[in-house]
Design a protein around this nucleic acid. Structure first.
Lengths: 343, 343
DNA sequence: TTGAAAGCGCTAACAT
DNA sequence: ATGTTAGCGCTTTCAA
């Protein structure tokens, strides 16, 4: 494997000068640089990141901690991050927890990543106080997506506003019995968005003077199957909702499926609304709250990269992205006699 | 940042012994090991992978080259890989091309990854002869998913058989005019699966003595939108197909959408069949060919890990996973008078 | 503008 | 069972 010494020998110079030339540092005559670059190219030389890192104290690697790679939201954040990293010369170390709490512990509560990466992106995980303390002592720029903690770069959406947009839309159509499908006990990793969206839904209901009936807050685990089960339970309620607001498109699609199984249709029988606006939503004509996901990944990466550039220790930039309603065919006015509709 | 010397000082031993103790190497008394582990834990010591790698010549990192992270198939392969890596103490370096040919060039045609990873997983990319040559000279165990090249570990499915299963099913239902929706000019990265599935479709048609009518081979770019456009073109054909076989569920769902827009229904008017069997397929009741994706990711990782363990240079294990038809409601017998059905 | 020399924090080979 | 001694392949002073 050709090393910097091979290149140095080739151009008959010291490794120090070769290193300088290759990295574009000042103090190298243009012609020398050209000769070095040419030789390096010819020999197929690539610097060992290990050796370079050991000597310079950097890794040129960004760590990304993600609860699941297979979910739409997370994969698009990663996509956005990599869009920015590509070209900046940073590699991406993917720490995929796969929903595993032990893996979370290893990544967030130890110094495992400290010597591996120059900065850290943490997706949709609000650190516990201990984790927060640990992250702080890592001494790296850290970016949080879908969380908001002082002393870290943060990017998120206003989850309370998301629910307000959803409920306002439904109320505007004439709905009064609006149920919510959100997270559940199983999602041990990301609790913030589900909680805030539930809270926002309750707040909006109250603002409109509407009651939250018993059983109207259901767990959907952020999966299609979970949404389907949740809707099935909602349909069995004595006072059936006229609209179901699900905290993700996946769950909303599950809800639609449950309706169909029950021989019901959206929006004639029940209106359904989701969150995310992924491609599938347009396919099933699902009214949803759009959030810019890829952009959030790009933004957090930019922040962290900037911190790396300026050498500023722990920057504290917070940015909340706007969301908006995308009206489609799954929501409409409640069935006229819905209040007295037989089950 | 605490280093191995801090630990050594703490237990009053040499760094060599501490290193041995920490890595579980033989030649350390049990009580010494315990003392060392305790001290390391107490000090929050984590070995620098850079220094360790530089000294040992390994990186404990596996590189994964993926065309897109946001697509269902790729994210599940990555998930499968990480399932196996977790616990084995390997990190995962994600090289996401994002569909970018320049990024492919940098990852596949240079030595960029040579000093960064111990092994490489390449997803759904058949290397060009030059790339193949380059990969070989990297001297790493290399695993290919969705490709088949001598001298590399390979995992795939039989794409010809996939199409045969699809066509056989449709012919069994009585269809004779079966169109295909596959890749397109745009998918510069992964050409193999689209090509083989197209080939398999033609072969199966021929085997059944059926003609491939003009315009029956459409490009769908492996996206929902592409599938929708392809189906729209197929519906405008003078001799409309009675069945559409799409090479992915995403495209098949796009096809269903086009049907709906045209006021048609599956399977009464036209049967639709996909490939993958992702969660969404069951939701839209799409008949499809199931392939085990996560398992392919696990398998290729196992192979490469085994090569790493045994130190065998370039192993050559090939494994083809079985696929099977999952019949659902999107396929059925052709409309009785379909042959003479007006457009 | 260039070179010499001293590490970076570990592991590995060889002693003891 | 433990310690000593060289590096691994770069970058970074400090000199020239």
């Amino acid at each position: 494997m050709t090393g910097i010494r091979d290149v140095a020998r080739e151009v008959d110079m010291s490794t120090a000068s070769v290193s300088r030339a290759l990295r574009g540092l000042p103090g190298v005559s243009p012609e020398t640089r050209e000769r070095v670059l040419e030789a390096a190219r010819r020999l197929g030389y690539v610097a060992s990141p290990q050796a370079a890192g050991l000597a310079s104290g950097t890794t040129r690697t960004i760590g990304v901690i993600v609860p699941f790679v297979t979910r739409w939201y997370f994969s698009w954040i990663v996509q956005g991050a990599q869009d920015r990293l590509r070209g900046e010369g940073y590699d991406l170390l993917l720490a995929n927890l796969g929903g595993d709490a032990a893996a979370r512990e290893r990544m967030l509560a130890t110094r495992y990543l400290a010597k591996r990466v120059d900065a850290l992106l943490v997706l949709a995980l609000t650190p516990t106080p201990e984790e927060e303390q640990n992250l702080r002592t890592l001494g790296l720029p850290i970016g949080l997506v879908g969380a908001r903690v002082d002393g870290f770069c943060c990017v998120d959406i206003d989850d309370l506003a998301v629910s307000a947009q959803a409920v306002d839309h439904l109320v505007g159509l004439g709905h009064r019995r609006i149920a919510y499908v959100g997270g559940g006990l199983e999602d041990t990793l990301d609790k913030r968005a589900p909680r805030l969206r539930a809270e926002g839904w309750r707040a909006a209901m109250q603002r409109h003077g509407l009651d939250v009936l018993p059983g109207y807050d259901e767990a959907g685990d952020f999966t299609m199957a979970g949404g389907e089960r949740a809707a099935t339970r909602l349909l069995a309620l004595p006072e059936r909702p006229t609209a179901i607001y699900a905290a993700s498109d996946e769950m909303a699609i599950g809800v639609l499926r449950a309706l169909r199984t029950a021989g019901l249709h959206a929006p004639e029988d029940i209106s359904v609304l989701g969150v995310d606006d992924q491609e599938m939503a347009s396919f099933v004509d699902l009214t949803t709250i759009h959030q810019p996901v890829r952009e959030q990944g790009e933004a957090i990466t930019d922040m962290v990269l900037a911190a790396l550039d300026t050498g500023a220790g722990q920057p504290t930039e917070h940015r909340t992205f706007p969301t908006h309603l995308v009206p489609r065919a799954s929501t409409g006015p409640p069935a006229s006699g819905s209040r007295t509709l037989p089950r």
